[in-house]
């Protein structure tokens, strides 16, 4: 599991985990993000059951389990949170922030100890020892109950499946040439994103945010002008194409 220092501010530090060389071939590569604020840490989209051991090992290089107080699952998919039953044993005191819509489903992954914080449709705030992190609605992008994480201190938007690309695990961490990156994203967004209306609603809200880094759950991160380029490209992209 590779670890990449993504961003830092006076209050928060971001780490990105992914590109696991030991990952079984047929499972999709995922990015996991760890946000640290003082003595508290938040792990976002902790990943599938297959990734648990390498993720736990990577996390323990950065924070102790006592510090890892919060988990976030943007939606209910197995590559996001099927490791929950194992984290539940490792972090019995932790809180999982996840859409209210999926609580009854996510609990199927096994949750006897962790506390479930159901996020309202309008979003909410995670308070990490006085440092507030925002949970931003991203419904239907792609899941019907879906959130992203925005850190206004480090200006990072963890954008879940928005901006995701399917490519080799040896690919660089950051998008360098946006135009060359488009073919790696197009089909993914056209097929997985079901609603043009939801897409435009999200774009309009994200345009109001001050973002230095946009960090999706698969593929590379976007920085600088590439964030604007992505929003423009996504705005013009017809999604929900499986229904002709």
């Amino acid at each position: 599991m590779k670890v990449h220092k993504l961003a830092s501010s006076a209050k928060t530090q971001w780490l990105m985990f992914g590109r696991d060389p030991n990952k079984p071939d047929k499972i999709i590569d995922t990015n996991q993000y760890l946000l640290r604020a003082g003595q508290r840490a938040l792990l976002m989209d902790p990943g599938g059951i297959e990734l648990f051991a390498p993720m736990l090992a990577a996390v323990l290089r950065e924070v102790s389990l006592e510090e890892l107080t919060d988990l976030f699952a943007s939606h209910q998919d197995p590559d996001i949170i099927s490791s929950l039953g194992l984290w539940d044993q490792a972090l019995p005191e932790a809180t999982l922030h996840s859409p209210w819509l999926w609580e009854g489903f996510i609990r199927h992954f096994g949750m006897n100890n962790i506390t479930y914080n159901p996020i309202a449709d309008t979003g909410g705030v995670i308070n990490l020892g006085g440092v507030e992190i925002e949970m931003v609605p991203a419904h239907y992008l792609h899941s019907s109950g879906n959130f992203h994480i925005y850190d206004p201190h480090a200006k990072v938007l963890m954008s879940g499946d928005v901006g995701a690309a399917l490519e080799d695990i040896n690919a660089p961490m950051e998008v360098d040439n946006f135009d060359q990156h488009i073919p790696k994203m197009r089909k993914f967004h056209q097929r997985w994103m079901p609603s043009n209306r939801a897409k435009l609603d999200w774009i309009n809200r994200v345009r109001q945010m001050d973002i230095d880094i946009m960090a999706p759950q698969h593929g590379r991160i976007f920085t600088g002008d590439n964030i604007q380029r992505f929003l423009d490209w996504f705005e013009g992209l017809e999604v929900g194409v499986a229904v002709s």
Binding site: L56, R61, A90
Partner: peptide, 22 residues
Amino acid sequence: RALQHFLKVRRSAHDAAHIQSI
């Protein structure tokens, strides 16, 4: 299964700064 994962991590990441927290 959780225990086996913990033991595996204990062995594989023995040099991790916070390994004792497992």
